[in-house]
Nucleic acid binder design. Structure first.
Lengths: 90, 90
DNA sequence: TCGATATTTTGATAATAATCGAAATATAAA
DNA sequence: TTTATATTTCGATTATTATCAAAATATCGA
């Protein structure tokens, strides 16, 4: 939960997720789209990985990242809880 | 968007929102529930206010905060976008 | 094996954020 | 008008995060 919100709290990381929505990409391909350096992107990928939002798969010398939105269920659930009016006594 | 995700990226602030779900509260009442000091809570309230997640209303010497979940629409929309498979050519 | 490519890790720095005590502001009550 | 209460603002400190350059790791191709 904490890691999920932390991962989402950065425009670069959210942009990475948006890119991965279109297609799986290697770390290098992801880095190309940004002005920040590769070590920085690697760090962002690590945080996204820790949150479970992306899944790495090694292929030859590349690491291909894919989007995993299933972990967002938890996020949706919390937001829904907050959004819904609380029942008396609950 | 940025301010929204930032506001949600803190357990104390999320707890404040959960409390306000049950009932409107003054800054002092909110602060009672936490170990951190009042200036710190005031700062958290400010960030939540900036994100539009809470609305202050002055009543005598108190400020009563209420939850405003309408701004979460934007958040839901983004999460849904990410979750849904991308259309070809989109 | 050697050199090139892909990615991460390390170590350092700079920017951002959380926290506190003290002071400031505003309102109320005596 | 003085005192008390509610809340915020200020200034400083600490903790966390983003970023970079350089070094390390892993795999490939010649």
């Amino acid at each position: 939960m904490d890691k999920l919100f932390k991962a989402l709290n950065d425009p670069t990381r959210r942009a990475i997720l948006e890119q991965l929505r279109a297609k799986d990409m290697t770390a290098g391909e992801i880095a190309e789209g940004f002005t920040v350096g590769k070590p920085t992107i690697s760090h962002h990928l690590d945080l996204l990985k820790q949150a479970g939002l992306i899944l790495p798969e090694k292929n030859r010398q590349f690491i291909i990242y894919s989007l995993n939105t299933s972990v967002l269920e938890e996020c949706f659930a919390w937001l829904l809880k907050i959004t819904k009016k609380q029942k008396r006594g609950a």
